[in-house]
Computed example of a mutant assay.
Amino acid sequence: MTNKSQEESNKTAKKMLIKNNLVERGNEARIIRKIVAIIALVFILAAGGMILGGYLYIKSALKPLDSENQKQKEVEVPIGSSTTSIGNLLEEKKIIKNGTIFKYYVKFNNISGFQAGNYKFSPSMTLKEITDALQTGKLVNKAVFKITVPEGLQLDQIAEIIAKNTDYSAKEIMEKLDDPKTVDEFAKKYPEIITEDLKADNIKHPFEGYLYPATYSFYEEKPSLDSIIDTMIKQTKDVLADFHGILAEKDMNVHELLTMASLIEKEATAKADRHKIASVFFNRMEAGMPLQTDPTIAYALGEHKVRTMYEDLKVDSPYNTYEHKGLTPGPIANAGKESIEAVLNPADTDYLYFLAEYGTGDVYFAKTLEEHNALKKKHITDKRKEASE
């Protein structure tokens, strides 16, 4: 073979090799595309399956858990229960399929006004039937009696209210509440709120401020005194549950919170801005000033006084905020949620004084003693003179 023929033969072989390589690469590319397409299809089918599965699950969760099961179960919805806690409770009792779905059903349908109480629900009920019952308060049975505890009451006043609605005497109730054994019992049950602070030597009544103001329904003719007290302390625990995070941020404990809230509750009139009153108390403590709040004097004296006299300010008591700086040893009354929230979110002010106008309850704030005295003359002293003439 000549050199020329050899070169042509080599060129032909090289072309064939290149062609074969191109063909092989084309085959590989087709295979890769097929694999990618298959993987993509698998993912699409999986995602579709998940979406479909989720849709079907939600759809089933919106239906009765068991339309054939009409057996009723008693469900107690505590005072202050959130939609989330009610949904979880119904799921635990096997009344509904999913508590979270229940929560969003309530939210998207703008349903509110659920009432506490004892209910009877069955797995055959629809979510609408359940929410309708919770809104209308269709209970298992009517309460035998109710006890209403308003805001700003002291423990002896609450004892009187309990006594009027039960066979227990006010003296018996107070003895129970002041017994250290009672503190120990509830400290074991509610350690997050009942602490050693209640056992301090200078505390007048351990449970002062710990019986939450609310209306309580009782379904027994003669509930035990323990159960009555328990119901009210549990309500305090439930109300405070949402505030533990901010308490930690502010380096404040429950006892301090309830103590400050009680001072605000006793000082606040219907027209008062509790957040501003809270700012005054905090500003005074920061400035090293005594709180000088009159309700603490009445508490120290053990009297429910309408007006504090000058000689009253000399009472020898750790609750005398004219003589002692800082908070009182404990609460001087119970406090509602508004006063509790005011403690945790005081207004940003420079005020150091406030007073309520005689006769109207309008509240005026001042930054200086001079300004405060002028307001006092105008809205209290002069108003009293006018009223007496």
Rank of each mutant, 00 (worst) to 15 (best):
Q157R: 09
I158L: 06
I158M: 15
I158E: 13
I158F: 12
A159S: 11
A159G: 11
E160R: 14
E160N: 12
E160D: 14
I161N: 02
I162S: 00
A163Y: 03
A163L: 10
K164Y: 09
K164S: 12
N165C: 07
N165G: 13
N165S: 13
T166A: 00
D167N: 14
D167W: 04
Y168A: 00
Y168E: 08
Y168R: 09
Y168V: 07
S169F: 13
A170C: 09
E172D: 12
E172P: 04
I173A: 05
I173V: 05
M174W: 03
E175L: 12
E175Q: 15
L177F: 09
D178I: 02
D178Y: 05
D178A: 12
D179Q: 10
D179A: 09
P180D: 10
K181M: 06
K181L: 12
K181N: 11
K181A: 12
T182G: 02
V183F: 08
V183L: 08
V183H: 08
D184M: 05
D184G: 00
E185Q: 11
E185W: 02
E185T: 14
F186Q: 05
F186P: 08
F186D: 05
K188I: 05
K189T: 04
K189S: 02
K189D: 02
K189F: 00
K189Q: 07
Y190Q: 07
Y190V: 04
Y190G: 06
P191A: 00
P191I: 03
P191L: 01
E192M: 09
I193L: 13
I194D: 01
I194V: 14
T195V: 07
T195N: 00
T195C: 04
E196W: 11
D197N: 15
D197Q: 13
D197K: 15
L198S: 03
L198Q: 03
K199N: 06
K199T: 06
A200H: 11
A200C: 05
A200Y: 08
A200Q: 15
D201L: 12
D201G: 05
D201Q: 13
D201I: 11
D201K: 15
N202D: 15
N202I: 10
N202S: 13
N202P: 11
N202L: 10
I203A: 02
I203P: 07
I203N: 02
K204R: 14
K204F: 12
K204Q: 08
H205L: 04
H205V: 00
H205N: 14
P206L: 03
P206E: 07
Y210E: 03
Y210D: 04
L211P: 03
L211D: 09
L211I: 08
L211E: 09
Y212Q: 04
P213Q: 08
P213A: 11
A214N: 15
A214R: 13
T215F: 06
T215V: 08
T215P: 10
Y216I: 01
Y216L: 02
Y216K: 04
S217K: 14
S217T: 05
S217E: 14
F218D: 11
F218W: 11
F218H: 10
F218K: 10
Y219T: 01
Y219R: 02
E220D: 14
E220M: 04
